[in-house]
Amino acid sequence: MIKGTLGKTANTVILLIAVLVLNFAMIHVAPGDPVEALVGEMGGATTEQIAELRAQFGLDQPLYVQIGKYLWNVAQGDLGYSYYYDQPVTSLILDRIGPTLLLVTTALFSAIVIGTVLGVFSAQRRNSLLSHLVTVLSLAGFSAPVFWIGIMLILLLSVAIPILPISGMTSSEVPEGTFWYILDVAHHLVLPALTLGLIYLAFYSRLSRASMIEVLQTDYVRTARAKGLPRRMVIYKHALRNAVLPVVTFAGLQFGQVISGAVLVETVFAWPGLGTLAFDSILRRDTTTLLGILFFSALMVVVMNILTDIVYRRIDPRIKTA
């Protein structure tokens, strides 16, 4: 058990280093660097000035030295300094990570819960109207691109029927820290979370429907019925717990996808999270910030996978080691 945990930790560290190195190298290969962007905003500079700036940022050194230094700093908890925002990257990210986590977990969690409920219900009445509706909706959810759904939702729920705000996370007139502030954030959260979560809602309703249909045909569900257990016990105690196993597996795997989806959704809805920050730093060649965000995203995915593992072991006693 301890050996397994140690091995896992070692794997995680190696994985994170690989992510850092790979990202660093990829950004290096892309045209443009922070100095060019900075010079562009300053309105031009002499070659000497540019060379001086490059030396100041350490960009004149060979790539492996740059990567080595960066890794060493990260190991000490220092993600570097963003010259564009004039702040340490760590504090920049910590400012923005809250809204992103709020958006991503709301979207994913509601997709899982609502999707599972829909799937479980439609699995029991396979030829009902609800069941067909779930199938059609999930197909539509699968096929439509996220940004298009976002725009359509804005048109429907903010323009045609103006009940939801189009962008941002808060209204300026609501004071922070009050009960109304929480409601206000929730109000702003609906559209982006819906846009981000819809495809996963579609996915989980299909997945749990298929899984539930399969489980309902197993021998142990027949045993449960033969024991004379009431229907709700057969469904919610014996079938559901087995049927959610694939849902948990996929939720863990897809967390990374949801984060990358968040970049798009945050940009569309001007949600002040990591996604918007990432988008801006790409435009501004703010590589330090971008690298920091990528590192944090990888970290979140790793943490989420560990959490999934723990949940999975709690649900399924057959998984004990490794």
Partner: peptide
């Protein structure tokens, strides 16, 4: 009336 099935390997719920 109770019943014992043919397949002991799959007739018990794996998670309880």
């Amino acid at each position: 009336i109770s019943m014992v099935f043919q397949e002991p390997m799959t007739s018990l719920n794996p998670v309880y």
